[in-house]
């Protein structure tokens, strides 16, 4: 039993995960677009194309997973993968802060908050430097986009 499992070990983790991703998206696509009129090859409905694509993704996903298991050589850099969690979260948060703020609190506060947060994404964040950068970027954004290009923003 253990020998059997060892024989089935996932040797290419990245390829396997990508396969799972394709499989799930493919299944979801088939599930959702099955609700649209599908039609036939010669008279395609709005659901035809997405259903075909979903089925393709399922096939590719399964094939990738099989390949990740069946492959005999371990890709050397697979082990070195480490998720950069802090940058991921901070960059995501900075962008979301902009999205949440721009229609409510205006251009300058949104840019300031986003820039300040973005300054905290690096390894050794410095608050004062971040504040200065954020202030400078706010002024630049207002100058270029509001006064220069006259884009429809509110400043505050």
């Amino acid at each position: 039993m253990t020998g059997f499992l060892a024989g089935l070990a996932i040797r290419d983790t990245a390829g396997f995960v990508a396969g799972v991703l394709f499989l799930l998206v493919g299944l979801a696509a088939i599930g959702v677009s099955g609700g649209y009129p599908v039609g036939t090859l010669l008279h395609m409905g709005p659901g035809y194309f997405p259903v075909v694509l979903g089925a393709l993704l399922v096939i590719i996903g399964v094939a990738s997973m099989v390949r990740a298991v069946a492959v005999t050589t371990v890709t050397p850099d697979t082990a070195a993968v480490r998720i950069a969690l802090q940058p991921l979260l901070v960059v995501g948060a900075a962008v979301l802060v902009f999205a949440g703020g721009i229609d409510r609190i205006g251009l300058i506060p949104s840019v300031f908050a986003t820039a300040l947060l973005a300054c905290m994404a690096g390894p050794k964040p410095k608050l004062l430097e971040g504040g200065l950068i954020a202030a400078a970027l706010s002024a630049m954004a207002a100058g270029i986009f509001f006064y220069g290009l006259k884009l429809p923003f509110t400043l505050f």
Binding site: V91, G92, A94, V95, L96, F98, A99, G100, I102, D103, L107, V111, T114, A115, L116, A118, C119, A121, G122, G130, I133, A134, L137, A141, F145, L151, P152
Partner: peptide, 27 residues
Amino acid sequence: LVPAILVFCCIGVYSVNNSSFDVVLAA
């Protein structure tokens, strides 16, 4: 450079449709 890239990209994405939804999508 990081805050500058993020800010300009956010503004760029927003101005496509003037939609904050698009910025969330880009994230």
